[in-house]
Simulated scan of single mutants.
Amino acid sequence: MKSLYRIAPNTRTTKRHVIFTEGVQKKLEEIIWENVNEKKIDSRWKITGAAQESYSDSNIEEMDYIPAFTSIPLFSQNFVTQCALEMSADVDFIPCTIISRTKKNHQYYIARTRRFLSLINHDETDLKEKENLLSPVIFNKIQDDFFLARDTIQKTMLIASEELKKMCDRKKINILFFEVKYEKNSDANS
């Protein structure tokens, strides 16, 4: 049985997101969640987000992962340099600039996964209108090989695989991994 993980930045700060303007946020959500294989990214589009005030420049430079609101994952230049080639079949990396509270620019990349799997057991997890999680999430057992995947219905749910965790451990990538729980009595799903 393969383990699944949620990822988190390796920081103690509580306000730990990158914020995009509303127009940029909506466009990113469309590109990342809907028809990901059909949407082309205009290379002239310069994506910029602001790090919340609790992030210092040194935090941003040391971390390899920072989340943006609505589960938009941002990875460092270090992560992309070391991992992007191995992940290229599943993930597109879109350049993004993060501006810190000191107005310094930091190069990061938005990860757009092309893998949507039935990660959540929707019969056992209490969902409100298929969007808001009201109870602890019960996950299906996944046998597919992947690095990052989103749930087919709850698209804000981003999960990392055991393969990604092992690669990050091997390459000393600065990301925290938290193993998720499977449902108790389920056959493997894919």
Rank of each mutant, 00 (worst) to 15 (best):
N59R: 02
R114Y: 06
M87E: 07
S186H: 11
N189P: 01
E53M: 10
K172S: 06
I72H: 06
K172D: 06
A149P: 04
N105P: 10
N105V: 02
S118N: 15
M157L: 12
S54E: 14
P73Y: 00
K26Q: 14
R12Q: 09
I175P: 03
L74S: 05
D144N: 14
N105R: 06
G49F: 06
S76R: 06
S161R: 02
H106K: 02
K27W: 15
I32P: 09
E179K: 15
E162V: 10
D169M: 04
D123L: 07
R150A: 02
E61L: 04
C96I: 11
Q52L: 14
S71I: 07
T152F: 14
D64G: 00
K166Q: 10
K27N: 11
S56R: 00
T156H: 15
D123W: 03
W33C: 10
D123P: 01
L158E: 05
S71G: 14
A160Q: 00
Y108D: 01
T113R: 01
E163C: 05
I153W: 06
F79Q: 01
Y108P: 03
E30K: 14
D123V: 04
E38G: 10
D92M: 00
E30Y: 15
T14W: 15
F20A: 12
S71T: 14
R170Q: 08
S58N: 07
T21Y: 11
L28I: 15
I120Q: 07
T152M: 12
R170C: 04
Y55N: 00
K172I: 08
K128V: 07
L176V: 12
F139L: 11
T113Q: 01
H122K: 05
F69I: 15
R12G: 05
D42G: 01
Y5E: 07
R6T: 13
H122A: 06
A188L: 09
T97V: 12
K171L: 09
S54F: 04
I72C: 04
N140K: 15
Y65F: 14
R150K: 13
T21M: 10
S3W: 09
K103L: 02
T125D: 00
I66S: 02
V36A: 11
E131S: 09
T125Y: 03
C168A: 06
F146H: 06
K104G: 00
M87Y: 06
Y109N: 04
V80T: 13
K103C: 02
K184V: 07
K128A: 03
Y5P: 08
V80S: 03
P73T: 10
T14G: 11
S58M: 01
C168F: 10
C96F: 11
L176A: 06
L164S: 05
K46I: 14
C168E: 04
K39I: 15
L158K: 02
S100T: 08
K39R: 14
F93S: 02
K130Q: 11
Y5L: 08
T113D: 00
E22L: 13
V36S: 13
N10S: 09
N185C: 01
R114T: 13
M167K: 11
N185S: 08
Y182L: 09
K39F: 15
K2D: 12
N132D: 05
P136S: 11
N78C: 05
E62C: 07
